[in-house]
Computed example of a mutant assay.
Amino acid sequence: MSPAIDALPCGEGPVRGSTYVPSTPDHVLWGRLPCEADDPVARVEPGAEVTFDTLSHEGILEDQGRDPRAFFGAHDVAHVLDDAVALCATDERTHPRTFGVDGPHVVSRPVHVEGARPGDLLAVTVRETLPRVPYGVVSNRHGKGALPGEFPLDGAPVFSAFASVDDTGTRGQLPLVAGGERLVEFELHPFLGIIGVAVAGDRRPHSVPPGPHGGNIDINLLTVGATLYLPVQVEGAGLYVGDPHFAQGDGEVALTAMEASLRATLQVDVVPHEDAVRRFGELAGPLAETSEFLVPTGMDEDLDVAVADCVRAAVALLQARWGMDPSLALAYLSAATDFDISQVVDVVKGVHARVRKSDFARVDR
């Protein structure tokens, strides 16, 4: 185990938030997202910080043996999280899930935010991300990813690459060849792939495709300091998180990126409808914000449609925020804004734009 990162079992180590949600079996769903009918595991006031333990699905799935001690033991891992072992030991009565039908993700049960109503925005700001383990997994499986039918090679059902963390705790490592000692290194930027709000009704959505509720949006800009705005669907919002990453490239082309468990602290705030419209216009889906960018999104099974939806969302944002003429807004976006592919592997593909806030400094004066 790398000395730079100590394991963080549930209930141990630093907890920043005033409310703590562990990833023990009674606090999570597996493969489905919360809906209005799900009872909250906690209730908080706007402005509160909530600390979630999150659990990666890699190393616990059925096609990896559903035995994390055996899976990670093969890579000489000294400590496997007890909550991973406990979840794998549950049965259909407590965690109904059908492999290959339901999603793979372990997702927290919902947190009720007082005063959040449909039409408002839930503002979720990432305050802290702490690695719970010094390793992760990148997988390619099920004929998915960006190159289905070509990978995994040799017709294997699943290829799982074990990724370690270097002694500084800031870089991931993959071998150049299987079993080799030469390593490829890359920067770590921990974030949560799933941040969402509960949907109306009593049917839990599949955990894979993202949507207006957020969910599995996989936007790697959502690191510490970033805020995600989500249109509230039900009273109390029903905030949930999951799908922790240590790193991900835009696109996430293999199917997963460096999936690894995190302890994440999020601050929750409510933006009333009128204020939300004044600041951002009428949002049909998630909007992110960093210190540098406003990040509108577009999502659809067709990547071309996702791009078009993202462009429309960006034009509407420029109109609402700065009163920009829509034709000039489109011209500005073409000249100055990057449209990035968030991911192409979650059935519903995602695109996000990076609108540089400093470009409008003179307008804001």
Rank of each mutant, 00 (worst) to 15 (best):
M1P: 08
S2F: 03
S2C: 13
V15K: 13
S18M: 11
D26A: 00
E36Q: 15
P40E: 01
R43G: 11
R43T: 15
A48Q: 09
V50P: 08
E58Y: 06
E58I: 03
R69L: 12
V80Y: 06
D83T: 09
V85L: 06
T90M: 05
T98Q: 13
T98Y: 02
F99P: 06
V106I: 13
V107A: 02
S108I: 10
R109K: 15
V111T: 12
D120S: 02
L121M: 03
A123F: 07
L130K: 01
P134H: 07
N140H: 09
R141H: 14
L147Y: 14
P152K: 01
L153R: 14
D154H: 04
F159D: 15
A163N: 04
P175H: 03
G180L: 02
I194Q: 07
I194L: 12
V199F: 00
G201V: 11
S207D: 14
G211T: 10
T223N: 02
T223P: 09
Y229G: 08
V232K: 04
Y240N: 01
V241E: 06
L255F: 10
A257D: 14
A257T: 01
T265G: 01
D275L: 12
D275Q: 15
S291Q: 11
L294P: 00
G298L: 07
M299R: 11
D302T: 02
D309M: 10
D309V: 02
A313L: 07
V315H: 10
W322L: 00
Y332P: 04
D338T: 14
F339N: 08
F339M: 09
Q343D: 07
Q343A: 01
V345D: 07
V347E: 11
V348G: 04
G350T: 12
V355S: 05
